[in-house]
């Protein structure tokens, strides 16, 4: 059984997100370790990109911090490899923009992802229509190709996506880009129920979730996992001058979120 399937078979998953290399290589490594040590069931890690159109300002700033600190795709893979050396069981999903994959060579990217110990890759700007080469490369390299299902996804698109998606379904809970929101959008819970009826893949919900209450609501609608990004990135942003405080706050937040679901 894959690391992803194993986790979801056992429990509801809390999945924190961070940008690899935000704010710099060493701090980012500590952040990721803190998230795991504080109870993260799985990780969603992003590679910094200059033009992240699916992300709101919070994560765009994180991308900029990572890039400004000198993060490269090579060093991002290296960092994940180092994490994997210390933590052999935790599933790691990667969120990346297409140009980084295309530029490296699609097959090489997935092969490097596999070597780094990455279990799944979601390319934010690769919809079903452009997915063929990416899915083939993912399959060849034993990496799960993950796809987004959104409120706007029609039934027809959904059934096509299900034919190629592996690992889990990334259900986008808002109409919009990433970023903390006050409450769960109407329609999200319905969508979770609908998607759960049609697939055996685990369903993880992300975008806009920042509180225990939201996480609870989404899990009780039947979701298998909750992905939280901007709320964590905000903690990083607030504590750039105090790494110890940053790690403490992240650890506390992850622990609480984990407990709430």
């Amino acid at each position: 059984m894959s690391r992803i399937a194993e986790v979801f078979a056992k429990k509801k998953a809390f999945i924190p997100f961070t940008v690899v290399g935000d704010p710099d290589y060493e701090t980012s490594k500590k952040i990721i370790k803190t998230m795991i040590d504080s109870g993260a069931d799985m990780l969603e890690l992003g590679f910094a990109f200059s033009d992240p159109v699916a992300d709101g300002p919070t994560i765009q700033f994180a991308d900029n911090r990572a890039l400004d600190s000198g993060m490269k795709v090579d060093s991002a893979f290296r960092l994940i490899k180092e994490i994997r050396r210390d933590y052999s069981d935790i599933p790691i999903g990667l969120l990346v923009y297409a140009n980084l994959v295309y530029n490296r060579g699609i097959d090489k990217f997935y092969s490097d992802a596999h070597d780094a110990g990455i279990d799944a890759v979601l390319v934010a700007d690769i919809p079903y229509e452009e997915a063929k080469e990416y899915v083939e490369a993912a399959d060849r390299n034993d990496v799960a190709p993950v796809f987004i299902v959104a409120q706007t996804t029609t039934d027809e698109r959904f059934s096509r996506i299900l034919k190629i998606a592996k690992g889990y379904i990334y259900l986008v809970s808002v109409l919009g880009v990433t970023g903390a929101r006050g409450k769960v959008e109407e329609g999200t819970l319905e969508l979770v129920k609908k998607v759960k009826l049609q697939t055996d893949l685990p369903v993880a919900v992300g975008f806009g979730i920042s509180s225990k209450e939201q996480a609870k609501e989404i899990i009780s609608a039947g979701a298998d996992g909750v992905i939280v990004g901007s709320a964590i990135v905000k903690i990083i942003e607030r504590n750039l001058d105090d790494v110890d405080g940053m790690l403490r706050e992240i650890g506390g937040f992850v622990g609480e979120m984990k407990e709430s679901i």
């Binding site: 699916a54 229509e129 452009e130 706007t152 986008v172």
Partner: peptide, 25 residues
Amino acid sequence: MKSKGKFGKYGGMFVPETLMPALEE
């Protein structure tokens, strides 16, 4: 989509899933 929107190998529709239905429309 009726067309893949390619010009040779160029073009296409590299956008997040949320936008795809709007492009179809």
